[in-house]
């Protein structure tokens, strides 16, 4: 079936099977930052923004995204730079396979929450699994990022 939506600011028309997920549609459109880690909505790797909210693209039916605005990390390269640098300076990416999903969720959180506490950050990101880092370096990097972002806004 034909599905029209806005992907990273561009109108696209995708021809997908009726049971395709948004994840499948995005990979088929060449959005290779979007990863699949589990198929059971546990890992957070496939996180994208759907109408401004972070969602797991593996659990969204593509057909239901018709007319929606979808943003992947490909569409947020400039906004992601500062966060990416903070993570890189801690070595917090390690294998990097979970990084795009994490980056997308942190960017969503930064828009949604004002000055979140460390506990709020952990809870917001609880669905983003990482097997390499043990999360500590991500915490250090994200705290730095949020601080720099706030200072930049002032």
């Amino acid at each position: 079936m034909r599905i029209e939506l806005t992907l990273n600011g561009q109108r696209v028309c995708a021809d997908m099977p009726a049971d395709a997920t948004l994840y499948e549609l995005l990979r088929a459109q060449g959005m290779k930052s979007v990863k699949c880690g589990c198929e059971t909505t546990n890992c957070g790797l496939c996180t994208v923004h759907l109408n401004g909210r972070p969602v797991l693209s593996c659990s969204q039916l593509a057909a239901r995204c018709a007319g929606a605005e979808v943003v992947t990390l490909e569409g947020l390269q400039d906004e992601a730079q500062l966060l990416a640098q903070c993570l890189a300076d801690e070595g917090a990416e390690q294998c990097g396979f979970c990084s795009p999903g994490l980056v997308m969720n942190v960017l969503a959180m930064a828009h949604e929450l004002r000055s979140p506490t460390p506990e709020q950050v952990d809870r917001y990101l609880a669905g983003n699994l990482c097997r390499c880092t043990g999360y500590m370096s991500q915490r250090r990097a994200i705290a730095k990022y949020l601080k720099m972002r706030e200072e930049g806004a002032r």
Partner: peptide, 22 residues
Amino acid sequence: QGVRKKDAMALLCGKPVYTQDL
């Protein structure tokens, strides 16, 4: 030194660098 990984920014910015991406 805590040098940044050479591939860090590519990984963090979601560049197509893994097996399935290629």
